[in-house]
């Protein structure tokens, strides 16, 4: 079984994000980029499936600018077998990414599409669900445990009320949550080997997908600084303030 793992290049989780002076977006110049942490978890899980003999091949795929190659190489160094870059300079929206990934999935015919539940830049949490709808495959989001049993998939999901266990038919789309596993770092020999692994480069046109943005970003700004709170002397005063000042009750 092939496992397809879409991954995204984002600002490193340890970097303090700054808004550009012209408010057109966030500053990316000279900013350290890295693989989205949730994507790392997805790659780790796929590599573990391969190590366990359940998966036959792990393919990492990314859509974005040319530098996304570096992120793909990281995935290869972690243990993926080959990589696909869908190169475009157009800012991609979740639906465009989902359409691109559907086209790749149609071509590669994986048994499982494993991806992060969201990217830490846009925090959209949409792509996995959209691909599942476009492909017509079963989906399990926010996975904290994945077990393959023949052509069935048992997934434990992290939901608001606790944990939910579901069984799915394959092929399936699974989006992973933080507690699924602890991703490995790449060893030096694997970093070196990754340079020699195949990396295929495609464009949205090659896949016949129109990625023109449908949403226009008007302005990006910092959230307002939090103001200091007030202390109240009694419950009555609190209720009064909530009612008359904050007007929330």
């Amino acid at each position: 079984m092939k496992v397809l793992v879409p991954i995204k290049r984002v600002i490193d989780a340890n970097v303090k994000v700054r808004v550009k002076a012209d408010e057109s977006g966030v500053e990316l110049t000279n900013v350290k980029m890295a693989m989205n942490p949730f994507c790392e978890i997805a790659v780790e899980e796929a590599v573990r499936l391969k190590e366990a003999g359940t998966a036959s091949e792990v393919i990492v795929v990314s859509a974005g600018i040319a530098q996304s190659q570096e992120t793909l190489r990281t995935g290869l160094a972690m243990g993926a077998d080959r990589a696909i870059l869908i190169q475009t300079d157009v800012p991609l929206e979740p639906l465009a990414v989902a359409k691109l990934l559907k086209a790749v999935a149609d071509k590669e015919e994986p048994g499982l599409l494993l991806l992060g539940k969201q990217a830490i830049d846009g925090d959209n949490n949409q792509t996995a669900q959209m691909i599942s709808a476009l492909l017509g495959w079963s989906q399990a989001t926010f996975a904290s445990k994945v077990a393959i049993d023949g052509d069935k998939l048992n997934v434990t999901r992290e939901v608001d009320g606790g944990l939910e266990n579901i069984n799915l038919n394959m092929p399936a789309v699974v989006s992973v949550d933080l507690r699924l596993n602890e991703p490995r770092y790449a060893s030096l020999p694997n970093i070196m080997k990754a340079k020699k692994k195949p990396l295929e480069s495609l464009t949205p046109e090659d896949l016949g997908v129109d990625v023109t943005p449908r949403v226009e970003t008007v302005k990006v700004c910092e959230p307002p600084a939090r103001k200091a709170g007030v202390k109240v002397a009694s419950v009555a005063e609190l209720v009064d303030k909530l009612k008359n000042e904050a007007k929330v009750i």
């Binding site: 890295a34 570096e70 190489r73 990281t74 770092y185 790449a186 030096l188 970093i191 340079k195």
Partner: peptide, 14 residues
């Protein structure tokens, strides 16, 4: 230079 970026990240993770 590109390769050492990768090496640095892996060492930092270790």
């Amino acid at each position: 230079r590109e390769a050492i970026t990768e090496i640095r990240s892996a060492v930092a993770a270790l």
